[in-house]
Nucleic acid binder design. Sequence first.
DNA 1: ATATAGTCTATAGGAATAGTAGACTATTTT
DNA 2: AAAATAGTCTACTATTCCTATAGACTATAT
Lengths: 145, 145
Amino acid sequence: MLSKKAQYAIYALVNLARKYNEGPVQIKTIAEEEHIPRKFLEAILIELKNLGFVNSKKGKGGGYYLINHPEDINLLTITRNFNGPLGLIPCACVVSYERCERCTDEDACSIKMMFRELRDTTADYLEGINLANLLEDNYFLNNNP
Amino acid sequence: MLSKKAQYAIYALVNLARKYNEGPVQIKTIAEEEHIPRKFLEAILIELKNLGFVNSKKGKGGGYYLINHPEDINLLTITRNFNGPLGLIPCACVVSYERCERCTDEDACSIKMMFRELRDTTADYLEGINLANLLEDNYFLNNNP
DNA sequence: ATATAGTCTATAGGAATAGTAGACTATTTT
DNA sequence: AAAATAGTCTACTATTCCTATAGACTATAT
């Protein structure tokens, strides 16, 4: 399961994607519409800003907005920044890789290979989904066999 | 990432699978070979026993052993019992499903569909791997295109 | 009997998660 | 310039989960 923080980040970005090109959206609005605790959301938005996903405008009529087009933000990127490693065991991770103490030959270890393949499948899948895909109702029903 | 507990459970079971039909294996032996803290391993083995994966024999020459053939224990079953939900968001879970507060029509929600498909892929993958598969070096090199 | 080896109860430190409070700063409109 | 709006920053807290550990107890085999 993703952390609440990671989940909130995704929902906040989807909310902004839905209103792309409609001007800044207030923190309060996002918090209410997405059922996210306001103060918690503030912290997440600042992180999203530092990561280059969103920008903000202060004062009246201010709020947050997406910097890039929804099509250019995929779920792997979001997940990477707000959640731990994708691999299920340390030696199967890429970014957070740790050598396995149990192995003499890690390159022949079936346990590692198995978990590594699962990790890669997951990464590819998440990378293939962007925010625009998530806006359309029934996207999957319409695009899957 | 799986919890240490879940990882240890998998490595302990693989250790027992490697010695299937060779009589009971002592806690101490498994702990040393798999680099698992002994007392922690004790607790995990008791849980594995209650779940019906292993049995134990007391006294001299005692230890733990697998009840079923390694081929009959898949990784989905192990993971389910020692780690949280497979789905990345609550509404995409099966066992730990929670209704989404954001949705009016969950059946048309692309976010849910996406995470649900990923969950199902992961579950199918884990279910397809059994302990016997993990014993053979290079299993994946030999069986994947 | 005695050594061996699993079982049970209880506890505990620490990290991560999730959330809160309040003062402060920048911008826009009047 | 003043007032209202809205984001920013610092600090704090509560709770849960993870990862263990200690030690006394019980059952079995020889």
